[in-house]
């Protein structure tokens, strides 16, 4: 081999560069995100699979319908009417942003901008119980009228 002094470091650099994901993760345990599911509520707006895939599109549609079209009722695939509201509807069950939203968002490094406008729920000990529901409603009713 000619110019081994230049070629071999080059090959090493190339191999290191293309195997970055392998050696940077070497020895670390593969993390597994486990968002806490509300215990007392069994069903989300749509099926679990749909929500995992498309919740962001659904929320975007809701925002558009409420803000632009003044439509507040979403009819889900089962024909059930649902109040289109992040704070009053989604967060009623998923009352901890930290234990639910952030778990996967941090995992895949997604940066949703929901909380630029919306107020995340206060972190409470009683997670996803009926009592918390009423507390959340109280908290949301304290907000200025423009948020309703």
């Amino acid at each position: 081999m000619h110019d081994a002094g230049k070629v071999i470091p080059g090959i090493i650099a190339f191999v290191l560069f293309v195997t970055v994901p392998f050696w940077t993760n070497f020895g670390k345990a593969a993390p597994k995100p486990q968002p806490e599911i509300p215990k007392e509520y069994k069903k989300c707006v749509e099926s679990k699979e749909f929500m995992r895939r498309e919740h962001m599109k659904l929320l975007r549609k809701w925002r558009f319908d409420v803000v632009r079209n003044n439509m507040r009722i979403y009819i889900n695939s089962e024909g059930k009417p649902i109040n289109m509201s992040l704070q009053n509807e989604c967060l009623r069950c998923h009352s901890s942003k930290k234990k639910f939203c952030d778990v996967c968002h941090d995992y895949v490094a997604a940066h949703p901008y929901c909380w630029n406008c919306h107020i995340p729920p206060e972190e409470r000990k009683g997670w996803a119980t009926k009592e918390v529901k009423s507390l959340t409603e109280e908290a949301s009713s304290e907000q200025p009228a423009s948020h309703h």
Partner: peptide, 19 residues
């Protein structure tokens, strides 16, 4: 055609951990 990105990442992390 959305996919569940969390599952995708669990898979890719599995690839680099050889699991």
């Amino acid at each position: 055609f959305k996919v569940d990105v969390t599952q995708v990442k669990e898979f890719t992390m599995g690839l680099v951990h050889f699991k």
